[in-house]
């Protein structure tokens, strides 16, 4: 499989006051299309920062980051936003649903940035919600859903635009075991059946074990699992 994500000597440095704080140092990593990667590491290892860079919501300080051949760090802001809308699905630890929108409208949200008409959007949303097993909860608001259900709505939102890449930041971090398993089973299906490339940050080894490949970071350096994937 060809590399979907190609990372070379990637560095990220934050500034705290006048003090530069390096978070990522010279990361080299390739992730093939259709791969399922867990980024692991202790707090402060830089795994979330790496995920944010891959997702195009943060900019690297040095090195190159190509996704499907696109140098996303070089894209102007609005182009980058359009790129994210078309290519990346997000799954967050705390689901990040809009509390004033019901499940249907939350899933529909990314489609408001596409040229799809209302009827087409409805078809897409209904299919996505059926896939995550929530076809009967479309009218429910986030506060009327359990954590597991909210995360499934968020996953439906992540796949609604049919992106190539899904990034998940501690997707089970706020869930009980059963709900976490449901969510992980769902991610397995997205990867196995729909061929989505998934990059997931987690500290939970059980969760990480679901991925096809583990990548370990410590203090901003890749210590295991880097280079070309299998």
């Amino acid at each position: 499989m060809s590399a979907l994500i190609s990372i070379r000597s990637l560095g990220k440095t934050y500034r705290r006051g006048n003090q530069p704080v390096p978070v990522l140092l010279g990361i080299d990593l390739e992730i093939a299309a259709g791969d399922y990667v867990s980024l692991m590491g202790p707090s402060g290892s830089g795994k979330s920062t790496l995920l944010n860079l891959i997702a195009g919501i943060d900019k690297p300080s040095s090195g190159t980051l190509l996704i499907d051949g696109v140098d996303i760090a070089a894209l102007p802001e609005n182009d980058l936003a359009a790129w994210r809308a078309a290519n990346v699905g997000f799954v967050f630890q705390f689901y990040n649903l809009m509390p004033v929108l019901n499940a249907f409208e939350n899933v529909e949200l990314p489609l408001l940035l596409t040229p799809l008409g209302k009827a087409e959007r409805r078809d897409h949303v209904e299919t996505a919600l059926a896939m995550v097993g929530l076809a009967d909860r479309m009218d429910h608001y986030p506060n009327e859903l359990s954590g597991g259900q909210q995360q499934r709505v968020a996953i439906a939102r992540a796949l609604i635009t049919d992106p190539t890449l899904i990034v998940a930041d501690e997707p089970t971090g706020d869930l009980d075991r059963q709900s976490a398993d449901d969510v992980l089973n769902l991610l397995d299906r997205l990867n196995g059946e729909l061929g989505k490339t998934i990059v997931m940050v987690t500290h939970d080894p059980k969760c990480a074990a679901r991925a096809r490949r583990l990548v370990h970071l410590e203090k901003g350096v890749l210590i295991d699992g880097g280079g070309e994937g299998h």
Partner: peptide, 14 residues
């Protein structure tokens, strides 16, 4: 704030 961050991540512009 988090909602705004989420919307931006999903591709909504400033």
């Amino acid at each position: 704030t988090r909602e705004i961050g989420t919307l931006r991540a999903l591709g909504f512009r400033r």
